[in-house]
Design a binder for these strands. Structure first.
Lengths: 129, 129
DNA sequence: CTTGCCCCTGACACCGATGTGAACGTTTAG
DNA sequence: CTAAACGTTCACATCGGTGTCAGGGGCAAG
């Protein structure tokens, strides 16, 4: 398929697909005239890239793992594995961070909700400038 | 304490502390001469802000919750609570995203590690440009 | 009083990263 | 042939973060 269809299937704009390729996050085969061609597998590949990006991985980091997504262990696999291990640890600690942030937020929410529920304050409208 | 000490205690530069205040992430009381003065509680407040920023909250979002950090439920508490609920959901789904990304990464790691462990490939040096 | 250290505001510039718009030329498909 | 789809490229925007410089004040020890 060409870029338009991949875009339609993934919901990612043509613009971004080219941008991803630019950053080395996606690889396409080109027709003689230069048009990008993709296979079905690329649909999932795009989703994977998006998941990784959403997880806060940098483009560069993902780019280093790309060879391993295409086919298992070509040149650079060792390096990629190192990156992946490192990144796995990063993800784990990011999860810890999120958990901590959410706990703090929960606490903040509870304190304030409790306080707001108390009867002793006479400012129910809350629109007092 | 003044800004220098807060900076020393939190590891956040004076520059950034002023910047945070600029963005509405931090509130200071001022001496008659305009110098910022903080209490011990602000040390933790700074850490909280950093945790929230690290959790991917925008400055604007955090700014809206700030009144609730200082003292429970002043004006704007209702709005802040709405923001907090919304943000809590965002954090939760971000955690889901991280979990999914990590799973995908684990799979990628395993496939490649397995492949790399196979005996049939004769490219151990891996340094072939 | 002077010296030295800390602080204030405001501005200008710059970074790296992600993401977009738009212009303009080429290729493909009906 | 024409229109839709594609290609490249340049510029711009946002966001968080930083360095730095200028010009002014606060405050305590010597």
């Amino acid at each position: 398929m060409r870029i338009g269809e991949l875009s339609a299937r993934t919901g990612v704009s043509r613009r971004m697909l080219r941008y991803y390729e630019d950053q080395g996050l996606l690889v396409s085969s080109r027709s003689p005239s230069g048009q990008r061609h993709y296979e079905d597998a690329h649909v999932e590949r795009v989703r994977l890239v998006q998941a990784f990006l959403a997880a806060g991985m940098s483009s560069g980091t993902i780019a280093e793992m790309v060879p391993c997504m295409a086919e298992p262990s070509r040149r650079g696999a060792r390096r990629a594995l190192a990156v992946m291990d490192h990144e796995r640890a990063r993800l784990s600690s990011a999860m810890d961070g999120l958990t901590a942030a959410r706990s703090a937020l929960d606490q903040l929410i509870e304190v304030n909700r409790t306080y707001l529920a108390e009867p002793h304050l006479a400012e129910p409208p809350d629109g007092t400038p």
